[in-house]
Amino acid sequence: MFTTLISPADLAAHLNDPSWRIVDVRHDLANKAAGGDAFRQSRIPGALFLDAETQLAGVHTGTNGRHPLPSRDDFAALIAQAGIGDDTQVVVYDASGGMFAARLWWMLRWIGHDKVAVLDGGFPAWQADGHPVDQVALDVDASRRLPGPGATSLSIRPPLVDTVDADAVLANLTQPAFAVLDARAAPRYRGEVEPMDPVAGHIPGALNRPYTDNLNADQRFKSAEQLREVFSGVLAGRSPQYLVHQCGSGITACHNLLAMEVAGLSGSRLYPGSWSEWCSDSTRPVAKG
């Protein structure tokens, strides 16, 4: 069972295993059609596509962030429709160093499914290592269908991950019980630029650990030892539960959560609404620098 990362070679060895499902979540925050377009052109054989905007996020209210979580029931129904059952080994990949794949990894753990791993290096690594690629072009309708065995039974189990909401983060400003770790790039954290949200800056007191620092130059994850050294330094002797992860909309924060899991540091929490939810309320304080 793979529960954090899987190498292209290990996935290739199970490519035709009927108890495995491969999910393509390639996406581009600046071009929301890019992931589906890429999937229609080429993909790992047998993969299905799930869209980060329309399928892996809930209803936007304008105050709950850019990628709010769907209900656990709705998400579990989608996953069951994709042919993923209680005993299915899921492998998720993207072309962004695991940025979007980590989000689905976290969401599956959120409904209690632990047999899920992110393809280390994603589609570029799969290609670079010489593994087969399905290049039969699909039309738009075909890419939206969920291929494979069809709907199956999936139990919603107790979550393997935990969250905090905006109220808890706000209360933490005056009665600190945890540290917030921001996964965005440093210029966004400092409030020097803001390409996605209407307000620049960060949650007061939040620390910064860009998710890209989890990766080597080839976009594969650093070793467990390297990651453990860095995150242990952030924890400074505290338990992993001390950290609450956030980013712009709850996506790249999951990359830091995955990195900590790879490092053997389990138990940190996610603030799903993240900065896009936080800054939607002008009464919440904003820090810069």
Rank of each mutant, 00 (worst) to 15 (best):
T63M: 10
Q89V: 01
P18K: 08
D73M: 08
V244D: 07
F75R: 13
Q55M: 13
Y211N: 02
S153W: 03
H113I: 05
F49N: 01
A179Y: 03
S96P: 06
D51C: 01
D213R: 00
G233R: 03
D120P: 05
P285S: 11
S143P: 07
H27E: 09
V199P: 05
F221W: 15
L243G: 11
A142G: 06
E53V: 15
Q246E: 15
I156N: 12
Q241D: 15
A183R: 00
Y211E: 02
A263E: 07
K115P: 04
V59C: 12
M1A: 13
A95K: 09
A57N: 12
G121W: 14
C254N: 06
C254L: 02
P149G: 07
P159D: 10
W278Q: 15
M260A: 10
D94Q: 09
T252R: 00
V92C: 03
P198E: 06
V91S: 04
G289Q: 10
A217E: 15
S282I: 11
V116M: 05
P70V: 13
P149I: 06
M99E: 11
I84F: 04
D162A: 15
R43Y: 07
R188K: 11
V92T: 03
G233P: 04
F100G: 01
I44N: 02
L265A: 13
R284A: 14
D51E: 09
A117Q: 10
P124V: 02
L15Q: 09
D213S: 02
A177I: 03
I44W: 00
P240K: 11
Q219S: 13
G36P: 05
L119H: 01
K222I: 14
L154H: 08
S280F: 12
I79D: 04
A259H: 10
S96Y: 09
R103W: 05
I203F: 12
Q89D: 04
P187F: 00
D114P: 11
E229L: 11
G65T: 04
M107G: 07
P204M: 03
A185P: 01
G148H: 03
I111N: 12
D87W: 02
A263N: 07
T212A: 09
N256A: 00
L207I: 00
H131W: 13
V180N: 10
M1R: 14
G83Q: 01
G112F: 14
V92K: 02
K288D: 06
G150W: 04
A128P: 04
